[in-house]
Design a protein around this nucleic acid. Structure first.
Lengths: 205, 205
DNA sequence: GAAAAATAACCAATCACTTGCTTGCTTAAA
DNA sequence: TTTAAGCAAGCAAGTGATTGGTTATTTTTC
């Protein structure tokens, strides 16, 4: 009984639904603490049905991570398209990334820690997706360093930046006093060498 | 058969052994993916024996987090004792924290994400332990701001700093090219406003 | 264009195994 | 004698995954 499908082609996308629900639950409760029954129930299926679309729970995680990362990557590229100034580009990257992280409902970058549940080949595929995601960041950091707005664009800088941003999912509350835009500004300010004069403008207010 | 105990009082500390093993496994594989049998085996017990020392798996996590955090807190205080200069104090805090995180074998701060497996009262106790841990940090940041070495010491600054440091456990490899000391320097450099002249000294080399 | 075959997308039931935890017992130490 | 610390065995509840249908849709054949 392939459900009504009132409009033909309206939502033939149960697979994508499964992926979104799985990603959300994996982020919320963790991979191991999420049962395949949780996932099935979240999309209105019976407990065995997800295995028609995915061979295993691990494959669900792998697909959720890779497809989520690639979607985020596409969003990044679309957002920075045409922005020449590297500082403005960085600010956009940070803002979009934080949006994916704190406002989205999949939040794939957060699943990086759950990859330990997968075998080595799967982890390699995920690492490749992460490399794709990070490419525009490194490019922008290099541009900033070349423009003298950054003392160094060595890899640890990028990694520390990602740390600042990703970890915020552990403490940021959308209903708090801090907006995502302000958070993005605070992070960029901390990363960039202060441009001299504006020393009073920090992560304050 | 309470095992030999050749020297009386040599290792009557099976409880502490359990805590250390549990913390290590929880960090490595996550709370949900670690079985109580894993923990028992790690200290050479049978599967039911840990429940003599702890009422539940959750209580093991709670104790591991709180006692681990308090131990780290004590280590912090001992390390910064007598250091008057706030920048030197921050550097010490960062170095000791990274040591706990990357070189220790318990690494309690990393368990913050696993607290979601606990009920609200337990989470509140853990939050209190975290507050204790963070107190010397906020004090040092305030001092830095007062000394003009930091544009702002608002809470997000501390949280972003912790993000940089804690996230490093996802990518740092002790056998890599970057030493923990260099990583600590890179983080401090990114946080502090550059002191003017030294613009070539970054996280490079 | 209608009948027939194939397929996609499930469900109901269940299996083999793992999980946290309990119970009753044992033994060395106090 | 009592207590601390543990073991051996096992239970009840889950867990990931499989199997064998079932039905609407799609494709193929006549």
């Amino acid at each position: 009984m392939p459900r009504k499908k009132t409009e033909p082609g309206l939502e033939p996308n149960r697979r994508a639904e499964l992926l979104r629900a799985a990603a959300r639950l994996f982020v919320e409760k963790g991979f191991a603490a999420t049962t395949t029954r949780d996932i099935a129930e979240a999309v209105g299926m019976r407990s065995g049905s997800p295995f028609y679309h995915f061979r295993s729970k691990q494959e669900l995680l792998k697909a959720a991570m890779i497809e989520g990362l690639d979607a985020g990557h596409a969003r990044l590229l679309a957002a920075i398209d045409g922005i020449a100034d590297p500082e403005a580009r960085l600010r956009t990257l940070v803002r979009v990334h934080l949006g994916t992280l704190l406002e989205g409902d999949c939040r794939s970058p957060l699943l990086v820690g759950e990859a330990r549940a997968l075998d080595e080949p799967a982890r390699a595929e995920i690492a490749a997706a992460f490399d794709r995601y990070q490419a525009p960041w490194q490019q922008t950091l290099d541009d900033l360093a070349a423009a003298g707005r950054l003392a160094s664009a060595a890899p640890p800088v990028r990694l520390l930046l990602f740390g600042m941003l990703n970890w915020s999912s552990h403490w940021y509350r959308p209903d708090g006093a801090l907006s995502v835009d302000e958070l993005a500004d605070a992070a960029v300010t901390m990363l960039l060498d202060t441009p001299r004069a504006a020393a009073g403008k920090g992560a304050k207010r």
